[in-house]
Design a binder for these strands. Structure first.
Lengths: 332, 332
DNA sequence: CTGTTAGCGCATTCAG
DNA sequence: CTGAATGCGCTAACAG
């Protein structure tokens, strides 16, 4: 175990209180005494016990983040960015991984509560029909939280995401303009705003063009690489002109299946994703996608959260970040 | 703020001690009383203050992990796997990101110390000639730690990694057998075991074949996508037969440059990476690489660490995980 | 300017 | 089987 403040007080020949004040450089302590304290602290490699500190100060200086899937580079980027922003505000980030399961999400949140996180950022999981008790409880406990990237419907809380309907609309419209008619959409659980809004944008594009679209062109699945791969063969039987997805890794899964089975992309079928992953542009046929500006999302999420932590009140807000259409080579 | 154990004791009409015993289901409390306590705890949404708990129990149930770069999917996977293993052992993971900088690495470690992590897993950063004071301090403080994936030379501590020399040797030998002669190696700082061993394996393959290799065929750089891209043009002037790298994202950077400049891979130049990233196999020319089994590494790292935390002594060990050569399409 | 005292939330003696 | 008292490491209020 490391040295305690008592050790350094004793060695420096001062009281614990003085040592504390010196260390946290508060006013009211002689410059020499302070130096003496700081010196012995350094000598003993002293680092304050944050647990004790949190206890007494009633704040932990810590923010929790739950993401669904670290296997998806988009969320790695998000974690990375949020970590940076959180640190820059003098807080520490706690990470939880839900693997797209409410049980895990709930466990993560409970852990954060136990660790006395001052606020939580949640990327809701894509599971269907789930019990949102743990989310409601956050509200009851007055623990500030914001949802990022997507949102649970019916939850009164701050939220940051790209305007999903718009992103979806832009992409679908583009594809329709280029002559595609039968555009499939591989989505997550419809119980998420993520999917809901995307479907809205998708349908709106069709509506505007006065073209009908099939209700069964929308597929629900867990939004990862494996499921993208698995879901594709079924879908191909219906001979789509294009397959769009709610995230890039899903699209990568689709692409992989198509490649394995020697389909011509975009010759015989177009594919588009959502997110704009870093390494996605070096594919043989760089992926057409809708960019989600991770950094902006991270920034906004943390700001909103810190605002609430700082006592900011007012109704729950949803902040939209502009999605950007990236036409590349997987669409014709 | 949530309810404290005193609240639930009062409401249940028992003493704090009884409540504590009931909650931590220790022996010596009446079954009915226990139920009563548990019920009211649930009703109040009680979750024990871990800070207080850590303080009194003198253990935090927490393990720190410092990773260099979450932008590299290999480390995302590592974080993911380690998190899983750590949780399965009843611990919680704390994450730090060093961005390949000693200062940050040091900061992360200090944070972990303050948070009273019981042990730390470190992926050493690739910075050159750095001050390892913070690492030595860990030893002095008797805080168990293990290095994963690579190691600082001269540090007496447990370590898990693939047999880097062997991986490098296998790959280089393969390339030599296929007729390549001028094989470049883009590496991180040579002050890392990561690079050192790789270079050793690389040279050994040349030696065995009785073919000379140039000392300036080994390039040092920060091992990420951008630097892979930037470093390539210089390197091409020397007309290499093949470019190998210490990780896949570096190779992806090289590939991107070659693609942008219409080089024929593997026709006119071969490229190989190291790691075997998930999405790397769906490239137009799937990347030849050496697989590092992340899961095994995660497992071993946590086990070694927990062993030390549990008081295991004995000399520092390095555990090697078998690298697997994955010949794909970027090499001829 | 410095020291003394109290108490944050909890688990653990040790009496009853 | 239960309750009152003690202290983990630290900060804040108050005296000196």
């Amino acid at each position: 175990m490391g040295a305690t403040i008592r050790d350094i007080a004793r060695l420096a020949g001062v009281s614990v209180a003085t040592a504390s004040m010196a260390i946290n450089n508060k006013a009211g302590v002689n410059a020499q005494t302070r130096e003496l304290v700081l010196d012995t602290a350094r000598k003993l490699n002293y680092s304050p016990n944050q647990n004790a500190r949190s206890l007494i100060m009633r704040k932990s200086g810590t923010i929790g983040l739950v993401v669904t899937d670290l296997t998806n580079p988009f969320f790695s980027m998000l974690v990375n960015e949020i970590n940076t922003v959180v640190l820059s505000h003098g807080y520490n980030m706690l990470l939880g991984i839900s693997n797209d399961t409410v049980e895990n999400e709930c466990r993560c949140i409970n852990t954060f509560i136990g660790q006395k996180a001052e606020g939580i950022i949640i990327v809701p999981c894509a599971q269907k029909d789930c019990d949102l008790g743990h989310i409601h409880r956050l509200g009851e406990q007055n623990l500030p939280f914001v949802m990022a990237t997507t949102a649970y419907p019916g939850i009164q809380a701050d939220c940051v995401m790209t305007d999903l309907a718009k992103g979806s609309y832009l992409l679908t419209r583009h594809l329709l303009e280029r002559g595609h008619r039968k555009i499939f959409l591989i989505s997550g659980s419809r119980s998420l705003v993520l999917s809901d809004l995307r479907i809205k944008g998708y349908k709106q594009a069709y509506l505007e063009r006065g073209i009908p679209c099939g209700e069964d062109w929308i597929i629900e699945t867990t939004p990862n690489f494996e499921h993208g791969y698995e879901v594709t063969p079924n879908l191909l039987r219906q001979r789509p002109d294009a397959i769009t997805t709610i995230n890039d890794v899903l699209a990568l899964g689709v692409l992989k299946y198509l490649k394995d089975n020697r389909y011509d992309v975009p010759g015989s079928i177009s594919v588009a994703g959502y997110d704009d992953l870093l390494y996605t542009s070096i594919l043989e046929t760089p992926l057409t996608t809708v960019r989600q500006p991770v950094q902006e999302i991270a920034l906004a999420a943390v700001e909103m959260l810190l605002n609430r932590i700082g006592g900011g009140s007012g109704p729950a807000q949803t902040q939209y970040v502009e999605p950007v259409l990236k036409i590349r080579a997987t669409t014709r």
